[in-house]
């Protein structure tokens, strides 16, 4: 039986990785709500965010804020490009939904291969945003980066909530998610909204990638696991609001970290996925969707 220190330490680590899953999950939700498409290339945006940030920070030696801003803008542009070149033509030809999902998988393969050819296949990382650390509370160590992830996560959720509730464009996006045809009749450019949702969710993925890379590493292949975990988090959260997706991510991260301590690293996915199955069976519309309906 692991000690309580180990358990609490794993909890802290779990919250950190879970917040990142949450940010990716929000990215899934933004596109899904605007279009019904599950973008499996979401994890690639995380990888691209880390990769670009590495290039600007370490190779070109730009200051952190500038490097992050340029990386996010670039990844958002790639998101728009994916929408224009792949999603829109399929959308217009009324392709079956799962064919579009398959196409996003092909996009992931394509981008990963381009990254291997341009950046190489070596894993890379850069230092944490604030040096020193980790913060010690008793025997528990907390990386300073965790506070960056926490505060940026809170900031993103706050901004998104404001965006979706207070701005005209945000409300238009929500209108699209409720009823695309009615939204179109009200004069909302639905196609443009779809493009915007890809830009937004790519940017969210990039933020997640820039935040998480210092605590581990990034390489061309990290997109897949991040995408899968982010999607699981979105399902647990119920594809509803940004805070629900974030909560789903934290829950998943904590369960995974606890599973590593209790059962060993090999079974972390088995445990996490079993939790997902249980959640799905008892709350078929996600943990928070189900709870909201009962309340």
């Amino acid at each position: 039986m692991p000690s309580s220190v180990e358990l609490i330490q794993s909890l802290v680590n779990g919250v950190g990785i879970g917040l990142v899953y949450g940010l990716i999950a929000i990215g899934f939700c933004v596109i899904y709500n605007a279009s019904g498409i599950v973008n499996f290339a979401q994890g690639v945006f995380v990888m691209l965010g880390g990769m670009f940030a590495y290039s600007f920070l370490v190779q070109i030696k730009l200051p952190l804020a500038v490097a992050a801003a340029i990386s996010i803008a670039l990844v958002a542009a790639i998101g728009v490009l994916v929408q224009i070149l792949v999603i829109r033509p399929m959308w217009q030809r009324k392709a079956p939904m799962f064919a579009i999902i398959l196409a996003t998988l092909a996009v992931q393969l394509l981008i990963e291969q381009i990254i291997i050819l341009t950046f190489g296949d070596q894993p890379r990382t850069y230092p944490e945003f604030t040096g020193g650390g980790p913060l010690k509370i008793g025997d528990i160590a907390i990386d300073y980066q965790l506070f960056w992830i926490l505060s940026c996560g809170a900031l993103m959720v706050g901004l998104l909530t404001l965006f979706f509730n207070k701005t005209r464009i945000g409300r238009a996006l929500r209108a699209c998610s409720q009823n695309r045809e009615a939204a179109a009749l009200l004069g909302i450019p639905v196609g443009g909204m779809l493009m915007l949702s890809f830009a937004l969710s790519a940017a969210l993925g990039a933020v997640a990638g820039i935040l998480i890379t210092p605590t581990q590493y990034t390489s061309y292949s990290v997109g897949g696991p991040f995408g899968v975990n982010g999607f699981i988090a979105a399902i647990i959260g119920g594809f509803g609001s940004a805070p629900a997706a974030l909560a789903g991510g934290i829950l998943l991260g904590v369960v995974q970290s606890a599973a590593i301590v209790l059962f060993g690293a090999g079974y972390k996915n088995v445990i996490a996925l079993t939790v997902l199955l249980i959640v799905l069976l008892f709350f078929p519309r996600g943990l928070f969707g189900g709870l909201a309906k009962r309340a």
Partner: peptide
């Protein structure tokens, strides 16, 4: 694969 999916989505 993308070309096939875009031009023959079904």
């Amino acid at each position: 694969l993308l070309v096939l999916l875009i031009y023959l989505p079904k």
